[in-house]
Simulated scan of single mutants.
Amino acid sequence: MADKALPPIPVKRYFTIGEVGELCGVKPHVLRYWEQEFTQLRPMKRRGNRRYYQHHEVLMIRRIRDLLYDQGFTISGARNKLQELVQHERDRRKAGEVPLEGMEAVEIDHEAFEAALHDEEATPSAARSVDLSQLLQLRRELFEIRELLTVGR
């Protein structure tokens, strides 16, 4: 199953191992095994040793799955490649770049946006001048930025 066939990741804070298995197309026992093999993968454990994964961990699992199943890496090779990718993203952040996976820059008419936000008597036409799809794209980018910021915690 290629990455494109995987379902979208819902916007929520924590995922159970069963949910992650469905989102990533792997069985829970495989996820537990990968935890032992990939030190970057550390889901939070709560009562009864239940695992709770965050959004960035689901993305990491999808990346691991792609390396192993689609690109044919061995566990050791995937571990090394994942470490390279993580280091590359750290270097990009240090250089001031913010990687937004799967996101494209969207140009927003800032004057119309500001007018719609600050004009107390904003007319419906002023509000419509800010394209809803642009706002949704901006929202997605902000969620991605929030996830990137929580990875380092």
Rank of each mutant, 00 (worst) to 15 (best):
R32I: 05
N49C: 11
L67D: 00
M60Y: 01
L68M: 09
S129H: 07
E22G: 06
D3K: 09
M1I: 10
Y53N: 08
R46F: 05
D91H: 09
R92I: 02
M44S: 00
K4V: 13
R90K: 12
R51A: 10
G48P: 00
H118I: 04
V26R: 04
L100M: 14
R146K: 13
L142N: 11
Q134Y: 15
A2W: 12
Q83P: 01
L132V: 13
V130I: 10
D131V: 09
H29P: 13
A116Q: 01
L82W: 02
R47G: 13
H88W: 00
R79F: 01
E104C: 14
A127N: 01
V98Y: 10
V30C: 09
A78H: 12
L148K: 10
E147M: 10
P7N: 11
A126W: 00
S133A: 13
Y53T: 03
R50A: 07
L149S: 03
R93M: 12
F38A: 08
L85C: 00
I108A: 15
V106R: 09
K12Y: 06
P28W: 08
E144R: 15
F73S: 15
Q40K: 03
G96T: 09
G102N: 14
H29L: 02
Q87K: 02
R79S: 09
E84Y: 08
F38M: 07
L23S: 04
A95T: 01
A105Q: 15
K27R: 08
E104T: 12
P10H: 04
R62F: 01
Y33T: 08
L6I: 15
R90E: 06
E57F: 07
Y53K: 06
Q36I: 03
H88C: 00
N80Q: 15
G21R: 00
M103F: 07
P124R: 11
Y52R: 15
K81A: 14
R92G: 09
L142V: 06
M60H: 02
Y69V: 11
L31C: 10
L148C: 04
L142Y: 12
R128D: 12
L135C: 12
H56I: 03
R47Y: 00
P43D: 05
L41P: 07
A122P: 08
R92K: 14
K94V: 05
I145T: 09
G96D: 08
I64E: 03
K4P: 01
P99F: 07
I75D: 02
W34I: 03
D109W: 11
A127Q: 07
F143R: 14
I75G: 04
L85R: 06
E141Q: 15
R51P: 02
P7G: 12
A95M: 02
M44Q: 02
D66M: 04
V58Y: 05
L23T: 05
R139C: 07
D131Q: 12
H110R: 09
R42V: 13
P124L: 10
Q54C: 08
R93I: 14
